[in-house]
Design a protein around this nucleic acid. Sequence first.
RNA 1: GUGGGUGUGGUUCAGGUGGUUAGAGCGUCAGGUUGUGGCCCUGAAGAUCGCCGGUUCGAGUCCGGUCAUCCACCCCA
Length: 410
Amino acid sequence: MDIFPDEIYIWQHIEKTAREVAARYGFEEIRFPTFEETALFNRGVGDTTDIVQKEMYTFSDRDGLSLSLRPEGTASVARAVIENGKYADTLPLKYYYIINCFRYEKPQAGRSREFYQFGVEIFGAQNAAADAHVIAMGNALIQELRLKSTALHINSIGCPECRPKYHDALREYFRAHSDELCETCRKRLETNPLRILDCKSEICSKIADTAPRTIEYLCDDCAAHFDNLKKCLDALGITYSIDTRIVRGLDYYTRTVFEFISEGIGAQSTVCGGGRYDGLIESVGGPRMAGIGFAMGITRLILSMKQDGVLPEPPAGITLYIASLGDAASVKAIEIADRLRRVGISAESDLVGRSLKAQMKYANKAGAAYTLILGDSELESGKAQLKKMSDGSQVEIDINNIAELKAALQ
RNA sequence: GUGGGUGUGGUUCAGGUGGUUAGAGCGUCAGGUUGUGGCCCUGAAGAUCGCCGGUUCGAGUCCGGUCAUCCACCCCA
């Protein structure tokens, strides 16, 4: 993706806000490589997931080692934590990152093959308070960005202990309706019945409406955890709805899963998705350690901000444009401009040899708050007219007195 | 991977049933007298009509293929 100045300020605004909110919630930035050994994603994200099976950009290096461009960030952070022994530090570990990710998918609105996400992870905190903390951070960022049509949905998908029971119940239920299900869902019946829950087909979703719900099959520990999470969210005044159809496509998720969904930005409406992944660190070769986090799609945030009409103000233009007539004045112009820059004023002068009128037009387009015009007579007298572009008023200033000029520009 | 839409100057788009110099708005650049912007006016530059092949005396316009892009499925952030 190419991003030009007319849009980049939106990205910068989101990144800046994300960093501020993350810092306030006690997260610190982590940076890690753009690609990893493919095996990391196979184990971390999951061999059976679509991401690993058909969406990774995988290639061999000169030694024949299989590498893949990161399709997400969590597996890499887990690897970094293990490889650097961070699990031995004071827990919990709280990291955030702003990265580009790569997935070979068919592009559409809100989905591209290289995409950007802001993500956070907490390692070593098993309490529901950690889940609430992460959700609250995401919620705070979304509010800070003034998004209106975004709602929080939560669910619990249980743990390796209670999930099999639920899967059995689900399979049994859908099997009774198997002749009504769509073709793909009939296949899912055996491979991954969970996925039938978020099938978009009308009949399937109707059948799914009355299907067994994950939260009814949670083991005692998972049920208590989910209960605590709700209590925490209630205490924080965060509104949410329980959506038992939220399932995750990545194998590492356990218990809490959640999404912030934005209405009206197209079919790819999940602006932020996350959950708990207590088995991840262990499955990629580390100690048993709890984890929870989320990722926000930055392009989807922008889509949503555009829709809600809450884009930030574009940056102001330059403070001063110095127009010049003739070679001597041109040299004087770059000199004054540079002296001003050194004292913190943004200033520009002609670099392409435009006529005076064209320079003025340029100054206007560059959003210059003031212009200064230099010709032979100004060089001789040392005085020039400083023009305020908003109302056209002019004042005479001493062009050799930078302090006075700076003061006049305030 | 599947389905549908679209591909014409920098950009947004026009270009009935194929016919001779492919148009417009915006943008860019230059002018509108003598050293000054935003509005307005004038002019200019800029397109092998995505690519390849075919039908035809002749194709931007028809056919086939291919690529790109968009939307949706799928999947997810």
